[in-house]
Design a protein around this nucleic acid. Structure first.
Lengths: 191, 191
DNA sequence: GAAGTTTGCCTAAAGCTATTAGGCACAGGC
DNA sequence: GCCTGTGCCTAATAGCTTTAGGCAAACTTC
């Protein structure tokens, strides 16, 4: 019916990522993916171990793309400039690729996580903090705070959590970044 | 086989919430729930419209429980004391009831969201901010920031995102709350 | 307390997804 | 041009979701 379409794990992952953006990451199904390739479901199982494997690959792809964008954004910037740029990378990526962004949150087993681009992200946030004057362990605390704000804000905004209240979210986003900048510059040292 | 077991939407929701905590919210299935009641699957459909309806009810239950705890925690507290108490409500709830906490993130259609306890949450965060000196629109910005940090931190921590790095998460959590307190007291006014 | 009605759980069935086992044919090596 | 192997296919099992229609237990009413 579809002889030698040329399936590979990579193509499955890429199209799976598009699918995620269109229908949502949790709606990504081996069956739907097969349909997209006009191929029978069973055919995918030679390239991908199972549904979980497929989702893991999509997650790793998303983390990698996100890390690439972050690296780009941070190049040549420092201080608040870098902070805003990095923050916008996450927010913009989530808006452009909601399915992939959700995928990036897919829980990976520790080994997979270590092998993937997850580490790059915290390293880049640390790099950004070089523009501020923080020593360990405050730097780690700050890395975690930034991750929390970025992820928390973006995921609430995407989930429509800010929809039914007044000022527009762009305004809030700017003011939150202003506030974070101030906070990092005046970080309260340990008690 | 099981004559008049006494199914109601409420009992299904309650047991569904327990199920969520045990196996994860996304693993909550009408079939598994039927098994728990030792009843055939079809029987549940007289009490709950469908799987989405069931999950919505669990989500609303979780939001309500969370709002109740928050109200308790805020009673008689102000300033940083209140901030820490509220923050810990979210974090502790997520630790004690991971499935319910995930349920609270389940996307609701706008009307359902408005009817549910979602509004109570933002009202309480606003109440907490009375201890700080913020006028609109900064108050709204601050509400959103706090929501982002709480949700972001808790969901990354639960997802194991902080596992493979150095200082323990309790320490970071305290320092983050210290930082937020300082930030709210010295909130940067509009440019 | 018996008769009628409602209600609650059941059987049956169709459609979807995931996953495995084994077959056939097309592509490339010789 | 044959031969091998990889790549997609058919077939089959099993689980979850949802709807339609049945039967009997429980409530209502006299």
């Amino acid at each position: 019916m579809a002889p030698r379409v040329g399936l590979t794990a990579e193509r499955l992952t890429a199209v799976g990522a598009e699918l995620a953006d269109e229908v949502g990451f949790d709606q990504v199904t081996v069956s739907e993916l097969a349909r997209r390739f006009d191929v029978k479901v069973a055919s995918l199982y030679s390239h991908v171990r199972n549904s979980h494997d497929l989702k893991t690959r999509i997650a790793l792809l998303a983390l990698e793309e996100l890390a690439d964008r972050a690296a780009d954004a941070l190049a040549g910037r420092a201080g608040k400039d870098a902070l805003v740029a990095l923050a916008n990378v996450y927010r913009d990526y989530a808006r452009e690729h909601p399915g992939r962004y959700a995928a990036a949150q897919y829980r990976l087993d520790p080994e997979t996580a270590m092998a993937g681009a997850g580490v790059r992200h915290s390293r880049m946030t640390r790099a950004l903090l070089r523009g501020y004057d923080l020593d360990e362990p405050d730097q780690t605390h700050a890395v975690r705070l930034l991750g929390s704000v970025f992820h928390g804000y973006v995921s609430i905004e995407m989930g429509g959590g800010f929809d039914h209240s007044a000022p527009d979210t762009q305004e809030t986003w700017s003011r939150v970044l202003d506030a974070l900048d101030v906070l990092l510059r005046t970080w309260p040292s340990a008690p």
